[in-house]
Simulated scan of single mutants.
Amino acid sequence: MLKGLGGLGDMAKMMKTAQEMQGKMAQLQEDLAAMTVTGESGAGLVKATATAKGELTGLDIDPSIFHPDEKEVAEDLILAAIKDAQAKATERSQQEMQNLTESLGLPADMKLPF
């Protein structure tokens, strides 16, 4: 490509690859913000929806869990659903990052962003 300039040709290729990776990372961040996951507890009595970035966006609670003498149970179910949604968001985000690194020809266990 740039014959006679030593490693400059490789440097130009590396810079182009870095710019491509940066663009794909930006797109992935947008995609993760648009993807949703749903965590649940109590056999679906409480459902929490979050983006793949982990931002809680919704909560669906079956009214049958609200009994004044079982307040702690309702709180535990809500907390469990939120934690489940956050765990699924983390898993989805890691899966998407791994897909990106593999598509760029990088090792699957490489952690992005650096």
Rank of each mutant, 00 (worst) to 15 (best):
E91L: 12
K13N: 00
A48V: 05
N99S: 13
G9A: 03
K3T: 03
D60L: 11
G39P: 02
E70H: 08
Q95F: 15
A52S: 06
D76S: 10
G23S: 06
M21S: 00
D10P: 01
K3P: 01
A81Y: 05
E55F: 10
A89G: 05
T57N: 13
S41W: 12
K111A: 01
P68F: 13
A50N: 04
L77N: 02
V46A: 00
A12G: 01
E70L: 13
T101V: 10
M14G: 00
Q98M: 13
S103M: 04
G6L: 03
D60G: 02
M25F: 02
G54H: 11
D69E: 09
M15S: 02
P63Q: 11
V73S: 00
L100H: 02
A74Q: 04
I65E: 00
S41I: 05
E30L: 11
A43K: 12
E96F: 14
M15Y: 13
A33C: 07
T49S: 08
E70F: 14
T57M: 14
M25T: 03
G42Y: 15
Q27E: 10
K83R: 14
Q86K: 08
G54F: 08
T101Y: 10
A52G: 04
T49V: 10
A74Y: 13
E30Q: 11
L45R: 00
L2I: 05
G44R: 06
E102R: 12
T17Y: 04
Q86N: 04
P63H: 13
A43D: 06
V46W: 13
G39S: 08
K24G: 05
K71I: 15
K53H: 01
M25C: 02
D10Y: 10
E40P: 11
Q22S: 11
P63L: 10
T90Q: 12
D62R: 08
A85V: 03
E96P: 07
I65M: 00
Q27M: 10
H67I: 14
L56T: 03
M110H: 07
M25Q: 02
S103W: 15
L32D: 01
L2Q: 04
V37K: 09
T38W: 07
K16W: 14
T38H: 07
A80K: 13
G44C: 00
L106E: 00
D60I: 13
G23L: 13
D31A: 11
T38M: 08
K47V: 00
E55H: 05
T38R: 09
T101G: 01
D60F: 14
E75Q: 07
G4P: 07
P113F: 13
T51F: 15
E20W: 14
V46F: 11
A74S: 03
Q86F: 08
Q22R: 15
M15Q: 10
A26E: 09
L45A: 04
L104F: 15
G42T: 01
A50R: 04
L45M: 09
K24T: 06
E91A: 10
M15H: 10
A52I: 04
D60R: 10
V46H: 07
E40C: 09
G4K: 12
S64A: 08
T101F: 14
K47I: 08
A50E: 03
G4A: 08
G9V: 05
K111I: 03
D60A: 07
Q27T: 03
L79M: 14
K13Q: 06
D109V: 09
G9S: 04
